[in-house]
Amino acid sequence: MNIIEIGGLTKKFGDFAAVDNMSLTLKEGEIFGFLGANGAGKSTTISMIASLLRPTKGEIKFLGKNIAKHAHFAKMNIGIVPQDLAIYEDMTAFENVRFFAGLYGFRGSELKVRVEEALSFVGLGDKHKELPKNFSGGMKRRLNIACAIAHRPKLIIMDEPTVGIDPHSRNYILQSVKELNRMGCTILYTSHYMEEVEEICTRIAIVDHGKIIADGTKEQLKAIITDSKEIWIDVKSVEGLNQERLKEIRGVLSVRIEEQRIKIQSRAEIANLNDIVQQLIRDGMEIRAVEEQAPNLETVFLTLTGRNLRD
């Protein structure tokens, strides 16, 4: 069953369409990745699903019911983990979760049980009496999640839940997302980290300029890119590299530098490796390794949008 159905969704701010005639469905039980660069329209779409913004046009259905007409039903069953920490620093972890869960109508022992459950789930059960101002960044992020799940929502929207935290906390959160999904929650997940999306999402949509430009499973998305390849060349130093000359080589689509690695996207059918290597030697590069990569999500994203996810 579809948990979310979006049809012809548009949101305009003045003349600017942040979301432009978007249509999308999320199935119950999936972890749906929402990929897009800054300003692509992800957050606006999420805000409309969470009833924070009203669409200019189009509709959103939650479990078959129009959100605009059944806002209370939708809100009771949706939890949101905002990108920015949304917690009260002057209230303990327990009080934070209790306050937000209390807004969903829970009181007394039921409320207490749900709060304890949520805090234990994110690994803060033993820190429930502490103030968030004494927490690390990762612990605050986990509390941010606990505040969104105590009312046991069917759909959890997670907007960049791992921004700015250490690898240990990131891993904890990713495992938590998978566990929530195993428990029956549908997850709508946005991230700048492609590897996170590749690891946990069962289906992915790529958003650009307010439109969905591709969606499907990882394999389906990668299959879109049949006419390009990525060549990774490790060098001792990229100092002196002339990127413009590389881009002039026949078949080269784009050139990116990541520390000592040069990533070149090229048309698949053109054999231009020799030309690339010779140009690098002319630029004085000391080549250490050359590898041809099959398309990954990053390649797909770059090919479809023409920009990096972190742009």
């Binding site: 969470a50 009833s51 924070l52 949101i80 905002p82 920490l85 949304a86 917690i87 620093e89 969903y104």
Partner: peptide
Amino acid sequence: TRHTIVRLSAAPV
């Protein structure tokens, strides 16, 4: 400024 407005607005209140 604390971004808690998001949670308040997303809740059935």
